[in-house]
Amino acid sequence: MIWVLGETRGDALAPVTYEALGAGRLLAGPFKRGLSLLLLGEGMDDLSKGVLKKADRIYLIEHKLLNSYTGYGYKKVLEEFFKDKDISALIIPGTSMGRDLAPLLSVSLGLSCLTNITGVEVINNTVHVKRPLYGGKIVETLALEGSAVISIMPRSFKEPEASERQGELIRVEARLTEEDLRVRPIEVLREIERREITEAEVLVAGGRGVGGPEGFHILEELASALGGLTAASRGAVDAGWRTHASQVGQTGKVVSPKLYIACGISGAPQHIAGMRTSRYVIAINKDPNAPIFREADLGITGDLFEVIPEVIKEIREIKGIQEGKP
């Protein structure tokens, strides 16, 4: 059986849950194996409706102590759950939850652990997985020869097609006590409206070339015109202009948006490490020799404070015309 661990974000399933199901389908298909989704916590009934046709079985593992993630809590319950079940692969989202859980769970289930997987393929009945090494400078392909916990990089897999059949919903009651958790969550600090850059479709990233915290206003404006978020290089983070949560790169986050616009970023290898897998890249830099241009589909040579207002104006014009249509 191919298993997928789901994750929620607010009152919905996180996008990476669908992506994990996509990766699961790629494995389940060629081997004619079933695909099962696990959702942990109470009140998942409504959420499971949206994925009923995306998995063969959906297990709702319920307990109030599973409502927020704890490594040992999840581990205990899953260990118990898998006792009498076979695992070909267990796919886990590569999020703050999944990155914490994957190694703990691998040890307790006695499985190998592969993280950061960006591609899955079945060749001659063997599963091949891909992962970036050394900040994406190299891609490694591995053949899977047994069962493994596989954590996937967000935005690397497509949501699977809905099947004809409705998946079977199975309810499981979990046993768990406070002591089992080991690590107790005391509070969650939500940054108001902070969406996660790893989950954004469009990112407008600024570097030292933005010149200061105020400079980011214009980037915010461009991001909102394109329905995206802003991000930053370490240059801008270390200068104290942006928080580390928005840093892209080797010691920040790896992002794969559809569109990445790098503004006033030179393109150091450690920065490229975080954005190389973006589908399209536009770079705006006043230095025609900036290395970022080598990683771009389109480079604009010029002062970002002249370029970006112009871009915003054009976008608004186009959007205005579209909105004006009946």
Partner: peptide, 10 residues
């Protein structure tokens, strides 16, 4: 750090 914020644990 967690998605969309941070959590404090003990």
């Amino acid at each position: 750090e967690v998605e969309g914020g941070a959590e404090v644990v003990e």
